[in-house]
Design a protein around this nucleic acid. Structure first.
Lengths: 249, 249
DNA sequence: CGTTCAATTGACTATCGTCAACTGGCGTGG
DNA sequence: CCACGCCAGTTGACGATAGTCAATTGAACG
C-alpha cells in the first residue's frame, strides 16, 4: 500500500482535497521505517523535526506519571499522522510509540511547510485534522470522567471500528486490533484485572469478539448504546460513518 | 480592558506576534455581550459562524451524557478563544457556556479568515493556540485516567493559577475563581460530596485557600508535587510560567 | 420571609484497585 | 529436543477510594 494513498484517503474522509493538493502531497519526501512493538517513534520532551505518517499497523501516544501509571491518549492506524501537531508545537509533551509491529513514513517539517505555504486549502485541511484529534480527546475525557468501565470499553471498540472502517481496514465486522489487555487498561484508565473482567463481560454478552489480533463487532446497535457512542465527534464528511454493520452470515 | 489587548497578550505568551498582525487583529469587528452565569454561548450541535473571545470572567466547555453526568472539558479566562476550533469544525460537538457572569466578544468567522488569508504567521499562531488547547486535554486525560482525587484537584489549581498569572489576572498568589464545588467536581470527574471532602483536605493541609470567588496558592511547591504538575504542556514561550510564587507577607 | 442554591456532614454501598497465584503459549538456548 | 523464562491472560480474595442517599445549615435574592 502506498503511504500517501492512505493519507489521501484519510483526508478525503474529513474534507475536500483538490487534485493539485493531492499532487503536492505526492511530492513529499518520505523515509520509511519498520518498527517493532513498543519502539519509541518520538520521545516525550523531544524536539520534532519530522511528522510521522502511519502506513501499516498501529501507533499510540502515551504519557507516564511519576508513580509509573501510564495513560494512552490515542491509537493510530494507517493514514493517521499522530504528531501532526509537532508542526506548531515542536517540543513533544508526550511520547509517540509503535503499539504493534508497524510501518511509518517520516516527513520533514520543512517539506510539509513548503507545501502548506502554497495552499491555504491544504493548510485548513491539516488544521482540521489536528482539531479532530482534539475532539477525540474530549470524547475520551467524557468517558474517563463520567463513564464506568463497561461503557468506556464499548466506546473504545465503537471508535476503533468506525475509524478502521472509514480507513478501509475492516473485513465486514472484523478488523485487526493488536492490543494487549494491558494496553486496553491503559487506554480506559482502569486496572489490568478490571479490564480483563470487563472484557469477559462484553464477550459473554455477545457484543464483541476479541482475541489478541482481531476484533469483531457482533451487535453494533447494542454496543453503541452501551458505549454511549455518537460518531459526530469524529467529524467525517458523509454519513457513511454511521451506517449499520453487516454481520457475516 | 480592551478585548483585543487580552487576546494580544495571550498570543504573545505563546508565540511571536508581528506588529502588522496585531494591527490586523485590531481591525476585527467585535460584538460585545454580557452573560449571566450558566448562559449558553454556543450550543452542542450548533453550527458556529463566530468565534468567541473571553474578555472578562470565565467560560467553560462541557458535554452531558445521556444519564445526566456532565464533564467540564476546560475553563477559559480573559484572552482565550474557547471555540477557535470552530473555524475548521463548524459543527460543535460540545457546549460552550458562561461559567460565571462574564463578558465575551463575538468575532465573525469570515472576518478572521480574511485576516488569516493575509498572514501565514498569524495562521500558524492561531493553529498553535488550538494545539495548546489539545495539549491541555491530554494533561487532563492523564489526570482523569491515572490520578486520585487530591492529585487531580491540586493539578487543577496549579493550571488555573499559572494561566491566570500569565494572563496578568493574579494579585500575588491570589486570583479570582468563581467556581462552585459542583463545577470543580464536574471538571475532576468526581462526585460533589467527594470534591467537597477533597477540597477540605487541601485547605486544612494549608496548600490552598479557596472560597467561592477567590483562590490562593499557599504552598506552591507542595501543591505542584501533589498535583504532579509540569507546566510544559501549556507551551508558553518563556520561563516566566515556571517561576516561584511570592506569598503575601 | 420563603425559596433556592451552595456547602457541609454522616452513614452506607459499590465499583474498582491491589496482591497473589496459576495457566498456557511461544521462543530461545543448552 | 526439551527446559526454561517471559509474556499474556485468568481467577480469587481483600481492601480502599469514591459514589449515593439524605439531612442540615447558611447566604443570597426577590
Amino acid at each position: 500500500m502506498d503511504p500517501i494513498d492512505t493519507l489521501v484517503r484519510r483526508l478525503r474522509s474529513i474534507g475536500t482535497l483538490a487534485a493539485e493538493d493531492e499532487a503536492a502531497l505526492r511530492t513529499l519526501p518520505l523515509r520509511l521505517l519498520d518498527l517493532k512493538k513498543g519502539e519509541t517513534i518520538v520521545a516525550d520532551g523531544a524536539v520534532a523535526k519530522n511528522c510521522c505518517l502511519v502506513v501499516e499497523g498501529y501507533a499510540h501516544r502515551t504519557k507516564t506519571l511519576a508513580n509509573g501509571n501510564r495513560q494512552i491518549f490515542s491509537l493510530h492506524m494507517a493514514g493517521d499522522i499522530p504528531d501532526l501537531h509537532s508542526l506548531q508545537l515542536r517540543r513533544m509533551d508526550h511520547e509517540l510509540a509503535a503499539l504493534s509491529r508497524c510501518r511509518v513514513a517520516y516527513i520533514p517539517h520543512g517539506a510539509i511547510k513548503d507545501v502548506l505555504a502554497e495552499s491555504p486549502a491544504l493548510t485548513d485541511l491539516l488544521w482540521r485534522e489536528t482539531l479532530i484529534d482534539a475532539a477525540a480527546f474530549r470524547a475520551w475525557m467524557l468517558m474517563l470522567g463520567q463513564a464506568d468501565a463497561p461503557t468506556r470499553m464499548a466506546h473504545l471498540f465503537c471508535e476503533l471500528f468506525v475509524r478502521a472502517r472509514m480507513a478501509q481496514l475492516t473485513d465486514g465486522s472484523r478488523f485487526e486490533l493488536p492490543l494487549t489487555q494491558t494496553d486496553i487498561a491503559d487506554v480506559l484508565g482502569i486496572s489490568l484485572v478490571h479490564a480483563n473482567r470487563t472484557l469477559q463481560d462484553l464477550r459473554s454478552s455477545g457484543l464483541i469478539g476479541f482475541d489478541q489480533q482481531f476484533a469483531s463487532i457482533l451487535r453494533w446497535q447494542e454496543l453503541k448504546e452501551l458505549g454511549q457512542f455518537d460518531v459526530s465527534y469524529l467529524h467525517y464528511l458523509d454519513d457513511e460513518a454511521d451506517r449499520p454493520v453487516q454481520q457475516k452470515s
